[in-house]
Design a protein around this nucleic acid. Structure first.
Lengths: 185, 185
DNA sequence: CCTAGATACTTAACATCATAATCATCTGCT
DNA sequence: AGCAGATGATTATGATGTTAAGTATCTAGG
């Protein structure tokens, strides 16, 4: 055993830190990646990226939306949509038109081609969910969803609490739940 | 109500597709992002990125590691480490040395500065976990971890099954659980 | 030996994400 | 009206993830 190993092991014991495997962000990241590994091949084979698929799904689910609302729904940022939407327009998966009453806004709509793409891929997607349900258990899936949603709620409360308690020092609200420079991982 | 809205609503009813909010990848992504929103400010204030923090934690937990093992542990890719590690070396958070018995390999070790950084940040991190435990519930947290791990196991089984059944057509195994061009979102 | 293939890691090229800056438009106040 | 500030969206810039190609080293078979 090398000196570094020994040091690290001592360090691990001395540090008031949970095991790396008990990191919530890591667990969520790994799990999501594992799920996506099942879904990606099908999407890729149809020439759709994960982000484009989210846009199609959001539009199919909620109907035409403004860009900001679409960003919220798909969990993408404005700039990402500004790049992705023109591509999808060219491919006639979606269309856009200005809003008469406010020329800053534009409405994004699902086009027939986009709808067909969804219809084409949906069975595959559902089949994967069926496999998951079979292996993992239906109740387990619903339980997981419940926990994830509840955790999100709890986290939001904590954030609000932070915002409130730091109000004395900094005037600005913590803006909004988003990230930092660099990729998502 | 616009024609597009009507179309979309009809489409939604016609399509054999679950509600967008019941998308497992989305739920995991949103939850992870919500968690990271609590952790990021502390890391950022100490000049560490999320990825660098994962590297430090992995080294503190398991001791010195080769680059490949580190990639596995941190869920980063080799090229990312090739970019990140030199920076961390310059800042003396970690160090590297060639392995005598195999000059291709190099061992990455935690340096005192890195250890101090962990020690500095760990309390903050644990305090956030404490808040989560308080709001969300301790049993809920452990239950979530359990479900996430079990789901990963199930997904791996499904992947293996796919690999086996597609063995006739394509010789190559599905390699390994990784992603596609573009960022993580 | 010594050459072919495998392995560890790096470099390069490209796509994407995140922040900030910018542009256009709208709203409220005077 | 007319201007200041807010808001929707795009563009610009920098950092990261991913794939593929490249380099160096090791291992195995002739």
């Amino acid at each position: 055993m090398s000196a570094e190993d020994t040091d690290a092991k001592l360090a691990r014991k001395a540090l008031p830190m949970r095991a790396f495997s008990e990191s919530l962000p890591m667990a969520l990241l790994r799990t999501r990646e594992a799920v996506m590994c099942l879904f990606r091949p099908g999407l890729r084979s149809r020439g759709v990226t994960e982000q484009q698929w989210r846009i199609l799904r959001a539009l199919a689910h909620s109907g035409s939306m403004e860009v900001t609302a679409l960003a919220e729904a798909t969990f993408l940022l404005g700039p990402s949509l500004s790049r992705i939407l023109p591509d999808m327009e060219k491919r006639q998966l979606v269309s856009r038109r200005q809003v008469d009453s406010d020329l800053r806004r534009s409405m994004v709509s699902l086009e027939p081609k986009g709808l067909r793409l969804i219809a084409l891929h949906a069975p595959d997607s559902e089949q994967i969910y069926a496999q998951i349900a079979k292996r993992f258990g239906v109740e387990q899936v619903t339980q997981l969803f419940t926990l994830l949603h509840e955790l999100q709620d709890s986290l939001e409360e904590i954030s609000r609490q932070h915002a409130k308690s730091s109000q004395r020092t900094s005037r600005k609200p913590p803006a909004r739940a988003r990230a930092r420079p660099g990729g998502s991982r």
